[in-house]
Design a binder for these strands. Structure first.
Lengths: 220, 220
DNA sequence: GAAAAACTGTACCGGCGGTAGGGTAATGTG
DNA sequence: CACATTACCCTACCGCCGGTACAGTTTTTC
């Protein structure tokens, strides 16, 4: 009695209809391809070949490539949201100190990306904003909202931090919140460029050092 | 008597032959397109259209798209090198203190990217490593060397800094050097994603705050 | 067992990367 | 000024790909 839940839209994997599973398979294959070659260079042909469906089958699920792009992004954003929730909520369970919560979250994030067997596969948000001309306004706005969502998330944490820990250097909290995204995006690029997956984790830990220095109470 | 220099290979713009100027125009147009749509989605057709040449003209300069990719990257790396040289050498002219040199360099870098009228156009290194499957081993190695070059540059500066300023938190100097690249690459992504050019400058200034906190002598 | 969902098959269009090869105008050189 | 090299243009062609159209078939679900 493993799969009892059967609410439409909130299905477990096994409870999904066949169409939904095929759609998911297409998205999974497409995401990998897009992260390795870019959106424009990813052909529908290769996707359907790997997914073992026909071209008609593909266009049954997505009316054109743009709709694939949108679906990919939505899926990616959702998955990121889940991961970040897990990581930073865990910090809240372990301590009441907001600074420690943030530091724990960053550490866990670093460990999480370090444990990825082949390194971080890449972030669709970065892919999309380096290929903006390929997408319509709606997709671009989605991208923007995702980034702003990250900012809000970390800004909320930082707002609680500064109550107890006045920063040792004047700093804009929105910009500091954005720095988490910056270091993750930049770290992924560096990891990919050098083929050294560990770099992303290292850079996140460096950011963590910065946060520590910024908020740690000075001696004296 | 403005252009006296006429050494082949080290020509000034005006002294370049006609072919060299056309080649340069192609590269300029191609770079813009690649930064906005990705390499795979940039058609030779549109490049020759904007450059007002024919397809044969294009293939006279580049035997295939891969050679265009390599030429683009080489040009991009060279230009970056020149800019970084200017910025960080200027710091060395203004003071003997290595920490101040680094801080001045970062500040000037931030100002430089802030003054770009349409924001930073993007970094080909990021484009290429998010589309690695499109390029051959040679191009990927070029990319890698460029990143390692940045690391060396900042590592050299940091080595001089730590002699006079012991860091307030244990830190790997290579990783810290890489953080400049990380923040620049990540900052570009953020700027593009939100359509706010200023973000890149802000993130560089935040990194500067980090460097200050890390090396500043503590009171007491 | 019927309706709906999830495809398959076939045929076609136009655009693009790339090749081949012959022709020509501009440019630098002795 | 002659000549060779450079720097292109023109035409024609190939095969792949995104996308459309639509009729037919299997699979799933109720």
């Amino acid at each position: 009695m493993n799969q009892i839940i059967d609410r439409p839209g909130v299905n477990t994997d096994a409870a999904k209809g066949k169409g939904e599973r095929t759609r998911e398979r297409i998205l999974e294959i497409a995401e990998q391809a897009v992260l390795q070659k870019g959106f424009g260079a990813t052909s529908i042909e290769e996707i359907i070949c790997e997914a073992e469906i026909t071209k008609s089958g593909f266009f049954y699920h997505f009316k054109d490539k743009n709709e694939l792009a949108r679906a990919l992004l939505l899926r990616h954003i959702d998955q990121d949201e889940i991961i970040l929730d897990q990581v930073f909520n865990r910090g809240q369970e372990l301590t009441d100190d907001p600074l420690q919560q943030f530091l724990i979250g960053l550490k866990m994030l670093a460990e999480l990306v370090e444990d990825l067997p082949n390194g971080h596969p890449g972030c669709l948000i970065a892919v999309y904003c380096y290929q903006e001309r390929l997408f319509d306004q709606e997709v671009r706005q989605l991208n923007q909202q995702a980034v702003l969502g990250w900012r809000d998330r970390f800004r909320t944490i930082l707002d609680r931090v500064v109550v107890q820990y006045p920063p040792n250097e004047p700093v804009d909290l929105d910009e500091l919140a954005d720095m988490v995204s910056t270091v993750v995006e930049g770290g992924i690029v560096m990891s990919k460029a050098l083929g050294r997956p560990q770099m992303l984790a290292n850079q996140i830990m460096l950011l963590r050092s910065f946060v520590k220095l910024l908020f740690a109470k000075q001696a004296g």
